[in-house]
Design a protein around this nucleic acid. Structure first.
Lengths: 247, 247
DNA sequence: ACATTTACTGTGTTATTTACACTAACCCTG
DNA sequence: CAGGGTTAGTGTAAATAACACAGTAAATGT
């Protein structure tokens, strides 16, 4: 068992009393919780599950799970997302770890939080749910139900993080289809930053970074003037090295 | 024991094979590692310990320890810092969690990383070291030895984080004494950002934020023209709400 | 053709950033 | 006490970025 090794390697004396007090591993574990943001062209949503197990049975919660013995934290987060959505190769980022001793009513569970960003195609089906959840739903971030555990806090911090990040990093594109219009891009910024932006200034600035490729192609299937489509050009972005995008 | 409860609450079936594969808590725990930055007026340093235990006996490492059963992560980080330096009420911030399955040779140890910022008075004695370390030293960040475990990676990420943070948040003052000169403040920015800044522009911008109080007092004990002393004014900073400092 | 809806465009004003070099004050030494 | 050494302290002009603001163009549907 691990405690002997661990106590030695961290220099604790092998006094059982001290061990019981100091070492948490007999009654603890770690999990991943994910704030999975999705954008469907109009609303910013996150994926919530309805729990089918105690504690917090029937409550809504962030998708999460225990970390397996042989997977890294990033792998674990990807797996959780994949198990729910069937998707892989999704942008995810670890942003904070929550570890209050009493955040979980049944033991010490330290939870490492990730956010994910993806685009919601109209037909994106969720995979069948595993036993611990009854169902999963995309919920508008402006209309969240009460959440289990400290998940409201985890969500709040996640939203705060992407607010900061979108100002300097090209993460908005993760929420959009490959081809998008400038208006859609502006929508993403406005939803995440929580404020209206001036259209002309937004377009001027965004184009000035030189990271968008004009596709010479128009939007289709809209009942009004079609907008031109753009694509985010990773090569051009890489060449910005040093210069920072800033909103 | 916790596994039963935990497996239930996360919806795993109580099948021992599955448990062994999926649940890590039998051979795992979590620790805190701290990048403790100190500024002595000239150099930016971090506190390293020389390990006295396997693995990595005799290597230099970041101060760290296991999290105790009843303390929060923040409390644990503060305790580790206090045990080494005797100091309390120090600025600390959690910034990333490292959890590769093989980052620790003797078991799964997920480590939550914190950075701390403090000023080094000339006479700041370190406390006697506990059994797991032979000694602790302040080491210039430009001259770090090879570090144990993945501690180089943990340090790198910590430095990266304070680089970002110092641009928008008033953390530089944590590294300085209460009364400081503008030149000292500029030194801190230059050391952390890793580049020279223009003196006149720096002073102009810094003063324009209106968060420094001119103390009508001069530096003492220098063998040249004495500079005026300033203090960071938290009240004035609080009133900036919304407006952001930016370098 | 007309109404409706969204795409698209430019300029003047103000604030911020940048680049840049000399004098002032103080200490120390001879 | 004069002069050398060292750091403190100061201003301006030019370039760039930020901001406020409104009307025409293009496509669709009736």
């Amino acid at each position: 068992m691990g405690h002997r090794l661990l106590s030695r390697c961290f220099g604790f004396k092998s006094n059982k009393l001290i061990l019981k007090e100091e070492l948490p591993q007999f009654n603890s574990t770690f999990s991943i919780d994910c704030v999975i943001f999705g954008f469907d062209g109009g609303e910013l949503k996150i994926l919530l599950i309805e729990r089918n197990e105690e504690p917090f049975k029937d409550w809504w919660a962030l998708p999460g799970n225990l970390v397996r013995a042989n997977e890294s934290l990033d792998q674990s987060a990807s797996r959780i997302l994949n198990e729910l959505t069937g998707l892989g190769d999704i942008y995810m980022e670890q942003y904070y770890t929550f570890g209050d001793p009493d955040r979980h009513p049944q033991g010490r569970v330290v939870s490492i939080a990730y956010y994910a960003l993806l685009r919601l195609g109209g037909d994106k089906a969720l995979k069948p749910i595993s036993t611990y959840a009854k169902q999963a739903h995309w919920v508008n971030v402006k209309d969240l139900p009460k959440l289990a555990f400290d998940h409201q806090q985890i969500f709040d911090k996640g939203l705060e993080k992407i607010k900061r990040r979108i100002k300097h990093q090209p993460i908005a594109f993760e929420l959009l289809p490959e081809k998008f219009t400038l208006t859609q891009l502006q929508n993403v910024y406005e939803l995440i930053l929580g404020k209206k932006l001036d259209k002309r200034n937004f377009r001027k600035k965004m184009l000035s970074f030189g990271v968008l490729r004009d596709l010479d192609e128009k939007q289709k299937g809209v009942s009004f003037r079609a907008a031109t489509l753009y694509r985010f050009d990773k090569r051009k972005y890489a060449k910005l090295f040093g210069k920072e995008i800033s909103f």
